[in-house]
């Protein structure tokens, strides 16, 4: 799970950093190589020269994506112990575990840009780093496991598939694996909703209620409208981002419109329509004020999610210290043995 259209891509004029940095010959050569790679739509690797702003943008995006995976474990972990069948419990556990795995790949990809996982984790816990707003909504019923899989993972896939071609090699490669697992998760979510929709009246109602609650937040996962997304342009020029927020959102709506029919449910939006002129799907207005509020920390679960992460981190401190101390002692023993 996870979303990437994280809204804190740098506010400073990112494109200009290299100009001032390229004062030495090595920088000039590096910039030339970088420009060529981007023009050829090829890949930048960790040891290649890259503009400081490119590094910073990527580091933020990848670490925020990693944080989203980790925080995103919580709403689903909320139902592991109450899953209504053993098979569903097993699938849900595997899914949440996959998310921890995604977090790991992404933190590793971010580390290749020169930041440690510890530092990223500290920033998250200190409330300095962002993660996808969607996880600040509560998972209130079992059907939310379906809606999160279908809508939230579905939106994440629309965002993430183009990221497999992101210009930064480690990120693109991590995304290939993540996307495979996400599409698995989305199918599982769809299946949960389908089963509920074909179940008892109470189950069907539970499914519709979950779709009603997750639809708009899922649409907002693509980020603000294009007119209001100033940093997207630079990310697109750097071949990190491939399609605009509105473009991806429109595609997603088109997919959901068909799938919701199969589910026998409805989308809580009577303004969804295909615009023949623009050849794009359109949807009703979204509450961008709410989006900004959640982003600013005033969402239903912001405090709860961070507190839970902080608690796990603090409770585990003695374990990590013990593991480090033990490893150091073992290393000393080996050295003594060698000497």
């Amino acid at each position: 799970m996870a979303a990437q259209n994280l809204q804190s891509v740098p506010a400073e004029p990112t494109g200009q950093a290299p100009a001032s940095a390229a004062t030495t010959e090595a920088d000039a050569a590096g910039q030339a190589h970088f420009d060529r790679v981007i023009a050829e739509d090829s890949r930048i690797e960790p040891k290649d020269w890259m503009p400081a702003a490119y590094r910073k943008t990527l580091l933020r995006q990848i670490s925020q994506h990693a944080h989203s995976e980790i925080i995103g474990m919580q709403p689903e972990a909320n139902w592991i112990t109450r899953a209504p069948s053993l098979k569903r419990k097993s699938i849900l556990m595997a899914k949440v575990q996959d998310e921890a795995g995604h977090g790991l790949y992404l933190y590793s990809a971010a580390e290749t840009l020169g930041q440690t996982r510890d530092k990223m984790m500290d920033d998250l816990i200190a409330g300095k780093a962002r993660y996808s707003s969607i996880f600040n909504y509560p998972a209130l019923s079992w059907a939310d496991m379906g809606a999160i899989g279908w809508l939230v993972d579905g939106a994440a896939i629309c965002n993430q598939v183009p990221l497999c071609r992101a210009s930064y090699g480690p990120y693109g490669r991590a995304m290939v694996r993540i996307c495979k697992e996400e599409s698995f998760h989305q199918r599982q979510g769809f299946e949960i909703l389908l089963e509920l929709s074909n179940g008892t009246e109470a189950q069907k109602q539970m499914a519709q209620d979950a779709v009603n609650r997750w639809y708009a937040p899922a649409l907002m996962m693509f980020g603000p409208p294009d007119d209001d997304s100033p940093n997207s342009k630079q990310s697109m020029a750097w071949n990190i981002k491939r399609f605009s927020n509105d473009e991806l959102r429109s595609r997603f709506v088109g997919m959901m419109v068909e799938q919701v029919k199969v589910l026998g449910l409805t989308l809580p939006d009577d303004q969804v329509r295909y615009n023949e002129d623009t050849k794009k799907w359109e949807h009703g207005p979204l509450d961008w004020h709410e989006f900004q509020e959640v982003l600013a920390g005033r969402g239903p679960c912001n405090a709860q999610r961070l507190e839970r992460r902080r608690e796990a981190h603090d409770d585990g401190a003695w374990v990590r210290e013990a593991a480090a101390a033990y490893a150091a002692k073992q290393l000393n023993k080996q050295k003594e043995y060698a000497a």
């Binding site: 592991i80 419990k89 921890a100 796990a312 409770d315 374990v319």
Partner: peptide, 15 residues
Amino acid sequence: LGHWISRAPELEEDI
């Protein structure tokens, strides 16, 4: 054990 998922001391232990 399922209760530990998302609460472990390290990501590796969540897994």
